[in-house]
Amino acid sequence: MATTLDPTPGAPPSPAPPSGPPRWIYAVFALGGVAFVTLAVAVLLLGDRTGGSSAARWHGTLLEPAAPRPSFVLTDTDGRPFDFAAETSGELTLLFYGYTNCPDICPIHMATIAQALDRINVDARVVFVTTDPARDTPERIRAWLDTFDPSFIGLTGSPEEVAAAQQAIGMTVAVTEPADAEGDYTVGHGSGVWVITPDDRVHLIYGFGTRQDDWVADLPAIAREPDWQARVP
């Protein structure tokens, strides 16, 4: 006997059975899509910026013609004379003039360089020359530099010696501003970090605003370059 699936005549029509996948499948796919898009956008927006750096293009300013490594003698934080040209000859050197009471530029430059050098395998000597010899004793400079990197070299001297050290690289000598009621004062000074390459030439200067990843991108390329003169356009 044949069976029929037809509803009983006269009975109300039964609701159509649901077709297609259940609704929660759509929700799972939607949430998965949202998670994927979130991840992709996050990586795109927040990812490291170092990938785009080019070794052929410096974040600092190329100096032309490149001046010779400056020559001056100051006192290091152990109290010994430090002949800058002789002690750093043939080495990649970052030279910065500043002062330990500086509220912004100096600590930011030092911290940025220290943290960048932590991340790369580059032999570079960092030399800090005070522009405030009245307050920056060797002990104070040492304690301050140690907060960034104990290997950083700190130099001071008499006001005349310090001024001569600034003139040696072609800088305008720093200006001490009038003290406030509490005796505090600021010092107006150049904000650039001078990069002296192993050929004993000052090829680059990095101004305030240079970031960690700028140093990380540039320093290995600077150190790798065997013939700096060939790079000068």
């Binding site: 949202v34 998670a35 979130t38 991840l39 996050a42 990586v43 927006l45 927040l46 990812g47 490291d48 910026r49 170092t50 509220p103 912004d104 600590p107 930011i108 911290a111 940025t112 991340r119 305030f208 605003g209 970031r211 960690q212 990843d213 990380v216």
Partner: peptide
């Protein structure tokens, strides 16, 4: 709770300071 962990993780484990505003601000 869940989705912000992605950018939160990237910010936490980034090799470099991501924001120039805060990297170059007076400490």
């Amino acid at each position: 709770g869940a989705l912000p962990m992605v950018p939160g993780g990237i910010i936490t484990f980034s090799s470099f300071p991501l924001y120039a505003t805060y990297e170059l601000a007076p400490r």
